[in-house]
Every structure is written in C-alpha cells, then in structure tokens.
C-alpha cells in the first residue's frame, strides 16, 4: 500500500497545522485528488481530511445582502438551493453543466475551485510536465493539444482550468476566504488561479497550509439575476469538460446595458474574466453588433497554443451566444440540459 498519513482534524486551526507540513494535502471529497493519487500523479505523504470540519457546510445570507458559501457545501446542494439558483442562475447552471450527478453530489465548493487541470499529459505520469515536475518541459506543447489554452498561456504550460463553476463566479467578483498560518485573508477569485508564466507549477495563490473556508458573492452579484446565462460547448451532452464556455451576466436598464460581466472557461489556466469586452458592453444597447465587438475584444489577446485555433473563433461565437441569451432573459428554471446550446433557442 502506498503509505500516507490520514488525519481528520476537529478544527480549522488543527487542519492548518496538519497541512502545513511538506507533502501534506487537503482532502475534500476526493473526486479529483484520489484519481490523481491512483494515477501516481499526486503522492501526498499526508491527507488532511477536511470534510468533517464544523461549520463549513453552510450557505449563509449575510446582512449586507452578500452570500457566504462554506467550502464544504456540495456542488449539487448549492445548485439545487432554490434561492441560490434564483439569485445566481448562471452559477447554478454552470454547476449543473459540470461532471455527472454522482460527482456533483460528492464534490465540494473548495474542491471545485482547487481542482487540477485535465491536461492529459499532466495525468500521464510518463510525460514531461512542468506542472508536475518544474523544468521537465511540456509535452502538450507539440502534442495532442486541440483542447488547450488560447489565452494567457506560456511556452512552459498551455493547460486550461477545467472548472465550470468558477467561470460565472469570476464574473460576479466572487471572493475567496482563506485561513492560513498567518490568519484569515481574502482574495478575489480572479486572483486565486495563476497564469503559468515561468512558474506553471504554482497553480494558485494559496500558500502551504492555506485552507479555503468559504466563497463570498458580493451584494451586487444578485443584480444580474434577470440576465444571466452559462453556455458550454462540449463533446457530449453531459459528463464532459468544456471545449469552450462563457458566462454572461448583464444588468439592463431602460434598454441599455448598465453593467456587464463576461467570463470564459476552457480557454486559459484560470477562469478568464473578459474586462475589455465588459467595457465594450457597458452603456451600449444590447444588439448583435455590440456582442460581436465584445467577443472580438474578449479574444483580442488570444493565440493558438497548438491545433486549437478553432477555439478562438468558437469562443467568440459562444460569447455572442451567451450575451444574446442573457439579454433575452434568464429562463424561469434551469434548463433540462444545463449549459447546452440546445437548451435554448439557437442563433441571434
């Protein structure tokens, strides 16, 4: 048996102490981590099981109208929370477009944020991968890379972040609450995941021992509830990661877009907030021409990292679609095929 310590701390402080040792790793539901361990990709010497930590499994409405989601809330429970789905429909739709029902029942909020890339070379212990082994090289670069990054990649790593959940969240300015050796701190979700640059092995801004305890959605996030969609193109209708996805959240008043939030998934090592596009949209009348301009702006910095030039074109079209559908209005209920283009009317 591959030996490792397994500890189940009773408090957050104990958890942090236990996880501050080299080689330790937090274990939530393990839907990602255990697969990595079985494949020999991760070999932690200690697992710090956080699933029984008290108080981290709650969804709390705070007095200022913001929402606090404990790191241990299950993906399915969050998506099926009626009030949550009403206030943040694109987030719920993104959650339900991910993985499978069984996985969503197990997966936690913290684990979803911290899940690792699905780059096949990262999972293949025989391949060179800078994330696994800094300086080893990147076998994806000249390999099978049709689904790899088109934004923010470096020669060192062209992987994407796979989470659907994070895409609308990053648009809504979600905040990550972290407890660590130095106490409590907060980080915008946008700053949690790092672009690879010269140090692809540093995937997030977390330091050793840092525990995500909650995710917060600021008060304004609710303001987009009437015009929010998540659209995800994938290679089968369910149980597949995004080829490209987009979350569009709009605030429309008097026939004008007052505020726009746009983020893309499957394009970069982080959920990609498209601020240039948001600027194009802000103040404009919602119409196809402006969506196309926004899409161009969103992908203006894109370049293929391999056989994936199509993703740049596809991403622009998805942006247009997500904006179109968001402007048309959030559907009354989450579609039966969440995130699927087939859950809505096609075309602009």
């Amino acid at each position: 048996m591959m030996n490792f310590d397994y500890v189940r701390p009773a408090s957050v402080a104990d958890a942090i102490a236990a996880a501050s040792e080299k080689g330790a790793s937090y274990l939530a539901s393990g839907t990602n981590l255990l697969d990595l361990m079985k494949g020999g990709v991760s070999r932690p010497s200690r697992l710090v099981d956080v699933t029984r930590l008290p108080g981290l499994d709650r969804i709390e409405r705070l007095a200022d109208g913001s929402l606090r989601i404990g790191a241990l809330v299950r993906n399915a429970d969050l998506a099926h929370d009626a009030e949550f789905a009403r206030n943040y429909p694109a987030v719920a739709e993104a959650l339900l477009s991910g993985a499978s029902a069984q996985l969503r029942n197990a997966a936690t909020v913290g684990g979803n944020l911290m899940q690792r890339t699905r780059c096949a070379y990262f999972y293949d212990a025989g391949s060179a991968c800078n994330r696994r082994w800094p300086g080893a090289g990147c076998d994806a670069l000249k390999g099978e890379n049709r689904l790899h990054a088109v934004l923010g990649w470096s020669e060192g790593c062209i992987a994407t972040h796979p989470s659907d959940f994070c895409v609308p969240l990053v648009g809504l300015d979600a905040i990550v609450e972290i407890e660590g050796k130095g106490g409590r701190r907060e980080l915008p979700l946008e700053a949690l995941h790092r672009l690879p640059g010269e140090t692809p092995e540093r995937e997030t801004a977390l330091e050793r021992g840092d525990l995500i305890v909650a995710l917060r959605l600021p008060t304004e996030a609710k303001g987009f509830a009437r015009h929010a969609r998540y659209i995800k193109v994938r290679e089968r209708t369910s149980y597949a990661f995004a080829v490209v996805s987009a979350a569009a959240s709009l605030r429309i008043e008097d026939g004008r877009i007052r505020d726009a939030r746009l983020a893309l998934g499957g394009v970069a090592a982080k959920p990609w907030r498209a601020r240039e596009a948001e600027q194009v949209l802000a103040g404009a009348a919602p119409d196809a021409a402006v969506y196309r301009e926004a899409a161009r702006a969103a992908l203006s910095g894109a370049k293929p990292s391999g056989d994936n030039a199509f993703k740049i074109e596809l991403a622009q079209r998805i942006v247009v679609r997500a904006l179109t559908l968001a402007a048309r209005g959030t559907p009354d209920r989450i579609p039966a095929l969440p995130g699927s283009p087939f859950s809505s009317v096609a075309g602009a």
Binding site: I231, V233, L314, R317, R321, A346, G347, A348
Partner: peptide, 10 residues
Amino acid sequence: KVDPELGQIR
C-alpha cells in the same frame, strides 16, 4: 440538429 453558429451536434 446542429447549432448553426456553435457547431454543437445532437
């Protein structure tokens, strides 16, 4: 059915 812009096939 095919999405006319996104190319998703069903």
